[in-house]
């Protein structure tokens, strides 16, 4: 099977969903997207969509293009070919200025948190609010307080990013991502580099944000514990395309040996997955 022909697992119907089918609940749609860096083809004719209110976890080995996908969705990078739609409107050809209102609908937690190192925690979280809302400082202060409380980081307002641990930075990054109540939150490796307990705390925060803010979420990770905990749907990328797409249980029982190798973290796995009931 070619990497661009995904095995789509839909246990409810038992039928594969055509990738090109137009679904009204699709908030983001990548259509025939290709992207290349130097001689390395990251995506080859990739078609994928993300549905409203769903938490989709994008899995894949390092360098497979997971973070690139998030940057393509935000318009931080342009695809070499193909089109990207947000709520049915194409953003691929939009200028940087016209992309700004589109980006305001998104929040993104970066892999290394990407907190502005010259600003305090308070100023980091308040940044997007100040940028886009003409609110009095008292109202901004209240928003920052609420968001920091949501991620259990009250009392850190005056600290600089360099004074925070990795887990604290992720939490502040999350507070910053949700500061303007985005419709879609993109998480780039939210648990990478964290100890298992802190990683689980971040997963719980992610679920709490999902529950309380009712957002659409896309989580890029190679942490399977995190994927199973937060994902409504798992998508696995491999060599430029999707090789598996379905709910966590279906992915766990997936027949493709590349999927089984990845989810079990066992490169020596030969062919059959360790569990039966293969679709």
């Amino acid at each position: 099977m070619s990497a661009s022909e995904p095995i789509r697992v839909e246990p409810d119907s038992g039928e594969p969903t055509p990738a090109a089918q137009d679904q009204p609940q699709a908030v983001i749609r990548l259509e025939g997207v290709s992207k290349q860096f130097g001689g390395h083809q990251v995506f080859r004719d990739l078609t994928l969509e993300f549905r409203r209110g769903e938490t989709t976890v994008v899995l894949g080995a390092s360098g497979v293009g997971k973070s690139v996908m998030l940057k393509l969705i935000l318009g931080l990078m342009k695809p070499d070919a193909g089109r990207i739609f947000i709520d049915g409107a194409e953003i691929t050809t939009l200028s940087e200025r016209r992309l700004m209102p589109v980006r305001m609908r998104f929040g993104m937690l970066f892999q290394g948190s990407a907190l502005f190192d010259f600003l305090t925690v308070y100023e980091n979280v308040a940044f997007a609010v100040r940028e886009h809302k003409n609110w009095p400082e008292a109202r901004i202060r209240e928003v920052v307080r609420q968001k920091l409380a949501l991620v259990d980081m009250e009392g850190t307002e005056n600290l600089l990013p360099e004074e925070l641990s990795g887990g604290m930075r992720k939490r502040v990054g999350l507070a910053r991502a949700i500061a303007i109540d985005p419709e879609v939150i993109l998480y780039d490796e939210p648990t990478t580099g964290l100890d298992p307990v802190t990683a689980d705390t971040i997963n719980s925060l992610l679920l709490r944000c999902q529950r309380e803010l009712k957002t659409t979420s896309i989580v890029v990770t190679h942490d399977m514990a995190s994927a199973y905990k937060v994902g409504d749907r798992l998508v696995m990328l491999h060599e430029g395309g999707v090789i598996a797409d379905g709910p966590p249980e279906a992915i766990r029982r997936h027949s493709d040996v590349r999927v089984q190798r990845f989810i079990h973290g066992d490169a020596s796995l030969a062919a059959a997955p360790p569990q039966g009931d293969i679709p």
Partner: peptide, 8 residues
Amino acid sequence: DALRAMGA
């Protein structure tokens, strides 16, 4: 990238 992602 974070600046751009926040519409700045």
